[in-house]
Structures are given as C-alpha cells and as structure tokens.
Design a protein around this nucleic acid. Sequence first.
RNA 1: CGGGGUGUAGCUCAGCCUGGCUAGAGCGCUACGUUCGGGACGUAGAGGUCGCAAGUUCGAAUCUUGUCACCCCGACCA
Length: 505
Amino acid sequence: MAKKPKTAIQPTRQEDYPEWYQQVIRAAELAEVSPVRGCMVIKPWGYSLWENMQAVLDKMFKDTGHENAYFPLFIPMSFLEKEAEHVEGFAKECAVVTHHRLEPGPDGGLVPAGPLEEPLIVRPTSETIIGSMYAKWIQSYRDLPILINQWANVVRWELRTRLFLRTAEFLWQEGHTAHATEQEAREETMQMLKVYADFAENYMAMPVIQGEKTAGERFPGAVATYSIEAMMQDRKALQAGTSHFLGQNFSKAQEIKFQDQNGQEVFAWTTSWGVSTRLVGGLIMTHADDDGLVLPPRLAPKHVVILPIYRNDEEQATVLEYCQKLSEELSSQSYDGQPIRVMIDKRDLRGGEKNWYHVKRGVPIRMEVGPRDVAADSVFMARRDTSDKSGIGRREIVQTIGKVLKEIQDGLFERARQMRDDNTHEITSLDDFHSLFPPTDDDAKGPATGGFAICHWKESPEVEALLKERKLTIRCVPFGEENAQGTCIFSGRPSQGRAVFAKAY
RNA sequence: CGGGGUGUAGCUCAGCCUGGCUAGAGCGCUACGUUCGGGACGUAGAGGUCGCAAGUUCGAAUCUUGUCACCCCGACCA
C-alpha cells in the first residue's frame, strides 16, 4: 500500500511556499494556466469566488454613490501619450493592435493585413479613454461630481506571471471620478480606500495596513497613491488595492475643464481606484493551509457541503432523503443576510476521496450523513478552519449554523491578524534592520524571513540602493505615521515619518 | 532583452551519454468484481506521428543543424 501523504498539498508551505501556492490553486480547482502566454483560465470554483467578491464590492460602490458604465477595450495610442508619467509607466507593457484583418499567407497560414492608421493599445488601465469622455461630459460645475466604476479586463504584458497575483490579462474594477474641488477629490480617494479596507478585513478576513505610497511606488501620473497592504503567510507583503488622487494631472492633459460658480474655467480634480483578481491570490495566501484552500464564509461559493454515505440502494434512499431535508432546512437559515449556501455531493465517489475533494476546495463546513446519523437524527460535522469534527444533532446544527459560520469568519480574521502582528516589528537601528532582513535568504523557498519592519526613514539614494540590494520595498507610510518625529535609521538624518518595509509580491 | 534549462501518454517523469525488435513507469482515466464513516484493492483495458523541420545512417526518442514553445534566474510590474 502506498504511503499516505500527511497533507493534501505537497509540498507544504514550509517546504516550498511558491510551489505550495500553485498546488493549492490546482487542487482547489480555482484556475489553470492557459495556452495563451501569461493568461489564466479561471475555473468555476475560482470564478464563483470572484463573483462573490464583485457582488459585495459592487454594492459598496453603489452605496457610496457610484454607477457602473463600460468603456472600450481599445485605446488609441495617442491617448496614452498625453500624460507623460503615465506613458512612461505603462508603455513597456502594452499589447498593441496594428491590423484589422487576416489574409491567407504564402505558407498556408494567416497573416495580418489591413494596417490601422493609428495603432490601438489594449487598455492597461482606462484613465485616458475615460478622461476623454469626461472632457465631453463636463462643462459646468453642475455636471460634477462624476462617479463611475467599470468592471473590466485589462492587459499588462508581464514577463513573469503567477496565477492571480500577476497575469498578463486580469479582471478588475476601476473607479474613475471627477470633482469640482481638490478637497472633494481627496475625500473620495480616502473613502474608496476605506471601502477596500473594509472589504479586505470584514469579507476576506484579511487584515490590512492603510497608508500612502512613497514617490517611487506611486501610480504613474498620480499626485498621491494610497494602498491597503496585507501580509501573506510567508511574511511577504501584498498590495491588495489602490486608490489614487490624480490631482489635475489628467484633467490638464485631457482638457477636463468646467466653469465654476464664478464663471471661471477651471480643471477638474480626478481620482481612480481599483482592485483585481489579485485579491483571490491574497485570499489563498492569507488563509489556505497544507490541506488546501480555506475560504472565509462570507465569500465562499458554498457554506456547507453535505456528503451522503451509504452502502446499498436501501441506505441510499433514506440517506439521500435525509440529506435533502437537511439541505432545505439549512438553506432556510441565513448568514450575513443571505440564505445559507448548501450543496449535496451525490457523486459516485468513495467517501474519503470525496471528503478530501471538499477539504482542498476550502468549503467552510462539511457534513457527513450516513445511516447511523439518520438513525440518530444527527450529522457528523467538520470545520475547515480548525479541523474540529464532531457529531451534532440535526436540529441543533440547523439552528446554530449561522453562528458557526460567523465564528469561522471571525476566527480566520483573528488568526491572520495575529500572524501579521507577530511578524510586524518596530525597528529603531540599522543593526536590527539587518538582522530582520539578513542578506542570505533570497533563495529560500520557505517563508521569507522578516515580515514587516516599521521604521523612521528619509528618502535618499543610499536607502534606495540598500532596499534594492535586499529586494525590499517600502510598502507604504501608514496613516498617522506621516509626521512621526525621529531619526532615519539609514542615514541618521531627521526622519520624514515612519514607513513599512517588507519583501513584496 | 542578457544567463541557464526543458520539450516523450491527460499529469509527473525514466529512456538519450554508448543509435537496434512492438517506447516505458507512477498517478489519472474506462469496465468488472470485492470494498465503502479519512485519500481502497484486484483483474482487464484505452491512451504516444518521442515539440517541429531538415540532415547523418541499413536503422534516430537517442547523433548533427536549424526552428518553435515553455520554464527558471536577472531588469520591470496590481
């Protein structure tokens, strides 16, 4: 008999974190690499998860006054050229469409024909195309604010790709707003960052640090970029969402102007903000374990899977009938304002195999129902987050299911927060900084050493060089730390605040 | 775009150095049987133009050249 692996996923997080990540995605059937270089196929389980994220975020956007719209996939190349920094930021990774037709080639294949007068780029982001429309739509202060979001795919021609974290094409939402005053635009930028933080923490159960990006990490063309930063289980940072205050940079480049109440022609103030399918990667790396995915109940495609167990037709009939009733009773209960999402897995598979299938996919609660349970009017329940397993009366679990799910949701957040806090260090000396990030762990396959370092700093070439050498980045300057008084641990000069340093995805 | 590596069954790979009958293994898949409350076992099967193209040879997965694709490491990035 073959030796049973101890964990469903191999290697474990400890042995080889990047490989573990890929194996979780495969085992949980979230996505696969596609025949198209750098692009992924999101499979039903993964897409369902994304749909749940979309549904929650979409409601949050609408509750804050935004409307959805849709702008073209293609952007005239000249549009991108308008904002200098923006060009520089994206030019290197644009897919360019140069022809509009295919013709039979000399060797039997097809060759592009019908060259375009002006090449089109596939949107890497939509500031320019949306801005060009805003320029038309906005004439008066009465036309403002414009608060629009779009759900779309974008393409950034990445060389090194990883499923969900960095793919050439990805799905996201991008909010684009225009305002009459700087203050209003700044408030919008902050409001949406808060929405993201709320979503990350309360739905994904992923604790985040909110803060402002440093000049070097800023969105191309933005005046200020804010982000939410999460710590993955390997202690690396993941930028999970960004909100940009664009000032008047884009409105000046694109002539988005209006007459104010004094009849003066002035430029609008704009913002943009987005989160992407990268969040799925963040969810995996925050909660998944060596047995596969672990889903927070608020986003799980299914809350409960019922696994009928029987040996013969007679047992099958009674067990399935019982499962059906259980499913209906559970579905009539609610969690998070919605009916409990239940599925019965009736597939003709062995019990153990079927059980592991759902473990790997991260279903929060599994309920095994066999003849013994039917007889005792109970179920055998297993929690994905704690591996707690126990028999429980049917009536009891139906009544408490919502409470159990809440407990799981809260527990996941608490566990992640604990992990993050345990690995966040306030560093006050260069020696401590070096010992937190020793230079030798670059090729380590397990968790990165270090975690988050919070330290005083002052922007300078030396700091940049050191960070580059150690493959470290400044994640953000957390709110409240901008004006912290102190001494830069690198240069000894007066600090410009405290920032979070970490290795990052 | 620099440096390194790999292309053989759905997946992971062996075989290549030293050319030779019908190209292999594990997993997965199909059927049947025994099983079934934590990843079952047995038996029988299906599945490959050995990345592609030329060349050398009586004979090429194996040697040579070209070509394409992908992976890893650097530079860049949500």
